[in-house]
């Protein structure tokens, strides 16, 4: 009996001791599971971003919660219909991704988010903003490809950008397909470093490929 109690208390103690790390994984997984539903409404995206940010601020040294908070914010920026609000949201995303970048420099995934932030800013007024943000977005994608050649997401983002560019300007499905196919090939061989690492994008590429059939 005493033995059992000792074992139990040791067990509990161990569980308690292990809890912070475990709690991090659990909280992250719970948030990541909410991605599918969160994308339906901007409010839930903001909720989710705040939730990731809370984890980020409590943990302080983990880049992934900052990364996902920025990921939510940049998607929010794309979803926001009132373009006069986009810059403020992009600023927030940028602030978050910069912290992620300082914790984990030269990350291909982080470069992808930075490219998306520049694209979101570009969309506010493509005519006026191309010279700055179009090139910035492009440059971050090039960085992302260079930082990790096995990462499919920069190819997905590039393909997506081309698909929505008019054919007369060198865009369209034909030009996009080349990148989307590369992205598909890379998704096939892609294994995230952990279950918490980014793995998004494949269904979107499949959808784009289908639209380009």
């Amino acid at each position: 009996m005493k033995k059992l109690l000792t074992v139990l208390s040791i067990c509990i103690a161990t569980i308690s001791a292990a809890q912070p790390g475990d709690r991090f994984t659990q909280a992250m997984k719970r948030n990541m599971a909410a991605f599918d539903t969160a994308f339906a409404r901007t409010e839930s995206l903001v909720n989710l971003s705040n939730s990731f940010e809370r984890i980020a601020m409590a943990e302080k040294t983990q880049w992934l919660p900052y990364y996902y908070a920025a990921f939510c914010q940049v998607n929010y920026a794309f979803m926001e219909q009132d373009k006069s609000k986009t810059d403020a949201i992009a600023d927030k995303a940028d602030q978050l991704i910069r912290v992620a970048d300082s914790l984990m420099p030269n990350q291909s995934e982080i470069s992808c988010i930075r490219s998306m932030i520049a694209s979101a800013r570009l969309m506010v007024n493509p005519m006026q903003r191309y010279m700055q943000y179009g090139q910035e977005s492009e440059q971050h994608l090039r960085n992302a490809m260079a930082q990790d050649s096995s990462n499919p997401r920069p190819y997905y983002l590039k393909g997506q950008a081309l698909k929505y560019t008019p054919e007369q300007f060198g865009g369209g499905c034909k030009a996009a397909k080349e990148f989307l196919q590369t992205a598909m090939d890379k998704y096939a061989g892609f294994v995230p470093a952990s279950e918490l690492h980014p793995a998004w994008g494949k269904p979107q590429v499949e959808r784009l490929m289908k639209e380009c059939q």
Binding site: E43, N47, N50, S51, E53, A58
Partner: peptide, 19 residues
């Protein structure tokens, strides 16, 4: 103010203000 982040510093606990 909607969409504001409310949190207890150094914990995971918190929420977001509603509309």
């Amino acid at each position: 103010l909607a969409g504001a982040s409310i949190l207890l510093k150094d914990t995971y606990d918190g929420t977001t203000t509603d509309s």
